[in-house]
Nucleic acid binder design. Structure first.
Length: 109
DNA sequence: CACTTGACTTATT
DNA sequence: TAATAAGCCAAGT
């Protein structure tokens, strides 16, 4: 889909598809886009996602379920707060039972 | 125009 | 087991 889209646009599209109460990783998104090693670009794209409103960047964490990008949010607690609001347990900036809340973009098909 | 940095991940030493 | 190298692609300096 949207192969003509920019990498960023593709990332945004996938991130928007993340269901509430679920999270995914940079690598999973990158891999879903066909670029496994482009996980850094996913993060870079997220940095630009501030211009958008339908991009729940707080649902995107690193492979350990750690809120690495929390510092890029409005406030450090913003990311944790948003995740907690969706029913995702976050302790010490780390998602608990991360694998249970993990959502694979490719899962939709 | 070339080099460095960046919200990452996997593999190798 | 821990530390280092490499890979990804784009933007900033």
């Amino acid at each position: 889909m949207a192969k003509d889209m920019d990498f960023f646009q593709a990332v945004y599209e996938v991130v928007r598809l993340i269901p509430p109460g679920k999270v995914t990783t940079y690598g999973a998104i990158a891999q879903a886009l066909g670029s496994k090693g482009a996980a850094r670009m996913v993060g870079w794209a997220m940095n630009a996602s501030h211009s958008l409103s339908d991009v729940p960047a707080h649902r995107v964490v690193n492979r350990k379920g750690l809120l690495t990008g929390k510092m890029h949010f409005e406030d450090e607690g913003a990311m944790k707060r948003k995740l907690m609001a969706e029913g995702i347990p976050v302790v010490d900036d780390q998602i608990q039972q991360f694998e249970s809340f993990f959502w694979d973009p490719k899962e939709l098909g």
